[in-house]
Structures are given as structure tokens and as C-alpha cells.
Amino acid sequence: MKRIIIVIVEIFLCFLLQTTIFQWFSLARVVPNLLLILTAAAGFTKGRKEGLLTGFLCGLLIDLCYGYTVGLYAFVYMTIGYLNGFCHRIFVKENMTIPLILVGISDLVYFFLYYVFEYLLRGKLNIGFYFVHKGLPELIYTVIVSVFLYKLLNIINEKTEKKEEEEVF
């Protein structure tokens, strides 16, 4: 139960940071996608189910606050969390290379799905333009911020696991 509360608090904090404070630090009119980092981290540190659930809650929160149709972002984030869950078996806490690569790939998947649902279905076919002006800057910014956020999430996860082990014994 405590883990669920901690995940919900993490989601709200990342959402608030992404939509308020990081708006002041936007580079090239993009902000890092903290909820994507959180979803990807939940997937490859805790597995497919946790990644799917975290992705659903993150996407639903964005849908309810900013989306035109409820469910679009929930689907995108759920997909990212679930796919990152497949890498749970190769996850090593000390290694930062795999999480950074997975966050980068997750951001590419996010951009592609966002492009398909928001632009391609409306007849806007210039994916190169959108990738250079929106996708690539967000990808770089998100990967850089993920170094720091991932370390913080790892510390929180370790403390939560220690408390759960202490309660069992």
C-alpha cells in the first residue's frame, strides 16, 4: 500500500514540476518529459505491470488536464511503460547506460506515437520538420534530465524496498 502511495506522489510531483517549474527552463520551446522518465524507470526497474500502471496513471493525468480526447496519452504512456518492462531482466542498479538508452528510445516511441495521432491523422505529413523542431530537442533535454531524476528515483526505490523488507521481518 505504501508503494502505491509513493508512486502516486511521484507522479504528482513530476507532473507539477513538468508543467510549472520546468516551463521556465524551456530550451527551444520544449521541456523535459518527466512523466516519461518516471514511466520508463518504473517499467525497467519494477517490471511490465508496474510500468503499465504507472504509464496509465501518468497518461490519464495528462489527458484529464491537457488532452483533447481522454485515453490518448494514457495509451501512449502505457505502451512505453509496458515495453520498458521487458528490459527488467537486464536491469542493473549501478549501470546508467541502459536506463539512459531506454529513456531515449522511449522518447522516440513517444514522439512517433504523438506524431501519428496528432499530426499524421490530420494530414500533416512532414515528419522530418516535426522531428527536428520538436522531437530531437525534447529527446536531448529529456535524456539529460533523466540522469538526475533517475538517480533520485533509485534512491527513493531503495529506501522503499528496505522499509518493506523490515516490515516483513
Rank of each mutant, 00 (worst) to 15 (best):
H133F: 15
V109H: 01
K159C: 10
C14H: 12
N157Y: 07
M1G: 03
V116K: 07
L149I: 14
K124Q: 11
I37V: 10
I127Y: 14
K49S: 13
I98Q: 12
G81W: 05
Y150E: 06
V132W: 07
Q23K: 09
H133R: 13
F86S: 05
V76S: 09
I127Q: 11
H133D: 11
F129C: 02
K163H: 11
V92N: 05
C87I: 04
L100D: 02
N154C: 10
I11N: 03
M1H: 07
F56C: 07
V70I: 14
R48K: 15
L72T: 15
D63F: 15
E167M: 09
W24M: 11
D63C: 15
F117V: 15
Y82Q: 06
F25T: 02
Y150M: 13
F44R: 07
V147N: 08
R89C: 06
F148H: 12
Y82T: 12
L35N: 08
S106Q: 00
I5G: 07
T160A: 06
G43A: 04
F131N: 04
V145F: 15
C65S: 15
I127K: 05
Y130G: 06
G135L: 00
R122A: 12
L17N: 08
I5L: 12
F56H: 01
N95A: 11
I8P: 02
G104Y: 03
Y82P: 00
C14G: 08
L36P: 06
N95I: 03
D107I: 07
Y150L: 14
F117P: 05
Y66R: 04
L120E: 10
K2Y: 12
C58V: 13
I80W: 00
S106C: 03
Y150I: 14
Y114L: 05
I6W: 09
V147R: 10
L153D: 06
E165F: 10
F75Q: 05
V168C: 07
S106P: 02
L38E: 06
L120A: 15
V70W: 13
R3Y: 03
L35V: 08
